[in-house]
């Protein structure tokens, strides 16, 4: 079922595009990623809209009042927050659901690229079972030409350029799609998530075929561009790393205090 619905259409589309795009695998991955991003744009847009509504609500006075009022009772706080969300018509899963629907597409795309590169006999045998027999001239395309610049797209990049680009673009995208929150816990969570996602994709890029890294980089750039269509981007926030090594502590300006206190002490001594 998974193969028939997701993998086979993706692999055959990829091969068809490859035949149209001058047998250039890099160009094919780029165009394919753009097409997938365009097709899933309604889901992404819904996710961003929901995220924005949630953010606006969390910055509202009513939300802050509830937080202050029920600071010591987490259960009550959750109940009141839920009521407020219902009142405002915000679904707490509204942002999650489109993301969950996109996961199979992302995994399918990953598998399609890995299968199409087919760097070993077992992988090529597997690829042969996915190809539609009616696809014109597909047999002449195999194996795909996987050389691009200094890279063999079936292997990890030996010079680590692609992993660095993946880490950079993943970080930027993570920061863009999770704008700053007034809630310190949420801000800390967002920070940790951005870091986790970035490191995760960096590891993928170091370990897996560099063809996948091209997909990650293009996908991340498109993610940022798509977000910018519906939201203003705060570039200052993106490069404000603000990494706190105490993951339990809220991300505030606490670390600055000792410096200020030292200055006051120096002034007193004078």
């Amino acid at each position: 079922m998974w193969d028939q619905l997701i993998i086979n259409p993706m692999i055959n589309s990829l091969l068809f595009l490859y035949s149209l795009l001058f047998n250039n695998l890099t160009l094919t991955i780029v165009v394919f990623t753009v097409l997938i991003r365009v097709l899933t744009f309604p889901l992404t847009w819904q996710q961003q809209k929901s995220s924005k509504a949630m953010q606006a609500m969390q910055q509202g006075d009513e939300w802050k009042k509830i937080q202050e009022k029920h600071a010591g009772d987490r259960e009550k706080l959750a109940q009141e927050q839920m009521k407020l969300m219902q009142k405002a018509g915000v679904n707490p899963l509204g942002g999650c659901l489109p993301l969950v629907i996109q996961f199979p597409i992302l995994i399918g795309l990953y598998q399609a690229i890995t299968n199409a590169i087919a760097a070993s006999p077992a992988q090529l045998l597997q690829l042969s079972t996915h190809i539609y027999p009616f696809l014109p001239n597909v047999n002449k395309l195999i194996p795909l030409d996987n050389q691009f610049l200094w890279m063999n797209l079936g292997l990890p990049d030996p010079f680590y350029v692609m992993p660095m680009l993946v880490v950079l673009t993943s970080w930027v995208q993570s920061k863009v799609i999770t704008p700053p929150s007034a809630d310190p816990n949420a801000a800390q969570m967002a920070q940790t998530t951005a870091l986790t996602t970035t490191l995760m994709f960096g590891w993928f890029s170091l370990t897996f075929a560099s063809g996948l890294s091209i997909y990650f980089v293009v996908s991340n750039i498109l993610g940022v561009l798509q977000y910018s269509l519906t939201n203003p981007i705060n570039w200052r926030n993106i490069f404000n790393l603000g990494i706190s090594f105490n993951f339990l502590a809220p991300a505030t300006d606490e670390p600055k205090r000792p410096a200020r206190e030292k200055e006051k002490a120096r002034a007193k001594r004078k």
Binding site: G95, F103, T178, M189, T193, T196, T197
Partner: peptide, 12 residues
């Protein structure tokens, strides 16, 4: 979106 879901989703 509820950010509490992001880390588990990323791990999955």
């Amino acid at each position: 979106m509820s950010r509490k879901f992001l880390i588990p989703l990323a791990l999955v």
